[in-house]
Design a binder for these strands. Structure first.
Lengths: 241, 241
DNA sequence: CGGCGCATTGAGGGCGGTCAATTGGTGTGG
DNA sequence: CCACACCAATTGACCGCCCTCAATGCGCCG
């Protein structure tokens, strides 16, 4: 059940059988969520952290004027809110984007890991740190890249991350994210996301995007456009994956 | 020497005398840096993490077209790159913004903390997680706030963080950050930063800003403009352990 | 006094926003 | 099997925030 998580953690270092057992037994409650359903609500003080088993989820915050900012996209193998272990009160919500399956790890278990399984504890620390690296890259996109560049960059990032958990086949992957959601992730309007996809990325032959599957037709071109350098994901290079 | 760090960590929970001693002895090398000088360079694999003792530092990345994005501002008591402990290769640089004094903690020490001082280890985890919370808030600013709102928000954030380490006096604090740097932090041009300060924040009586000191004249107004809610800074101790 | 870094201001333009209408795919009830 | 509802994608018209280029203070220091 947690094989995607293991695949992900192995990018940091080997996971022993015992460590795997600890994690397996810790994934207590498992639940399915429908798109738009809240997995964790802003303001809550959850006693568990959530792991995505299947589907897409995302961190978000609603602003006063009714706008929304999505601050992360989570794929299978990702912890959404490992930080809730130390931060207690959620400063943002987490919602299902596609139908998804979520497992919860009691904070008590994580605390025990930090006390009795230091190496695994450092692996979890790595999860939090990598999450930060992804956020920094999103900040770069939002601050200094044009709409077409940031969209190209995100598509590359997802390609890479999904590859780690073996969810890329034949240069294509599931992308059950609406254009409105993409817009909220990058501070763009739905209209403009559409125009970029429509008038720039597709005509350039870089991608094919159907209802919910994306195919990368020209990886070099897409990576060049998004100025994508996977170093920040702290994983093995694409070829070796 | 590390009293600012202790003040900061106490926002998570109490720090015992022994924990304090561990940190004090760990702060091995201390060095001064001049503005614009690199403290850690992108691509390096440092064997220590940096703590700001005095002055301002910042994370940044240079893009191909010559633009720059600043992804964090660090004040006294902040670890700049605690994440380098688990991420190894720096995916960004860290530079001095004002003249500043930096202490370095060997990763070996941090590893030892994770193994023999679990509570202190969790406090460091809290540092990384809080850092992430600040980044999420910056993402909200960059994605969904207007220039005047994001600048107002940043000024509020700094006020709060500096208050924790006792660097706010009479509603004012040192702000040795140029308008160009503020622009790079938010993806704005220098010109526009100036216009917002000049035509909006100052005339509204919200702030006074001299060469390098900022005074908040109307906290309510500034916080309202930036839609500032300090919850995300997680400054209320909440752990019983 | 001259150089330099930073703040400030003006003019003009473009990227991306808003508002609004239309198309198209999918699911559901009749 | 069709009508209808609904949601997402798409397109058009217009606009404004913020950008770029460029020039002008202005304070500090050698």
């Amino acid at each position: 059940m947690i094989e995607k998580l293991i695949l992900s953690l192995q990018k940091y270092g080997p996971v022993s059988d015992e460590e795997r057992r600890v994690l397996e037994q810790g994934a207590s409650q498992v639940r399915d969520y429908a798109p738009h359903e809240d997995i964790v609500r802003e303001g809550e003080c959850p006693a568990e952290s959530c792991l995505v088993l299947e589907g897409y989820a995302g961190r978000y915050k609603l602003l006063a004027q009714g706008t929304r900012q999505i601050m992360a996209l989570h794929i299978p193998g990702d912890f959404c809110d490992l930080h809730s272990f130390v931060l207690k009160r959620m400063d943002h919500g987490i919602a299902a984007i596609s139908p998804c399956k979520i497992a919860r790890f009691p904070h008590a278990l994580i605390k025990e890991i930090t006390e009795h399984h230091p190496r695994l504890g450092r692996a979890l620390w790595w999860v939090v740190a990598t999450d930060g690296a992804v956020m920094r890259e999103w900040m770069i996109s939002m601050g200094r890249r044009s709409a077409r560049e940031q969209i190209a960059h995100l598509l590359c990032e997802l390609f890479f991350r999904l590859q780690t958990v073996k969810l890329v086949q034949d240069d294509s992957y599931e992308l059950p994210v609406t254009q409105a959601e993409l817009g909220d992730a990058f501070g763009l309007s739905t209209v403009h996301v559409n125009r970029v996809l429509q008038d720039e990325l597709r005509p350039a032959g870089l991608i094919t995007l159907t209802r919910n599957r994306l195919t990368v037709n020209d990886w070099e071109g897409l990576a060049a456009l998004g100025e994508f350098d996977p170093t920040y994901l702290h994983q093995a290079p694409r070829e070796a994956a």
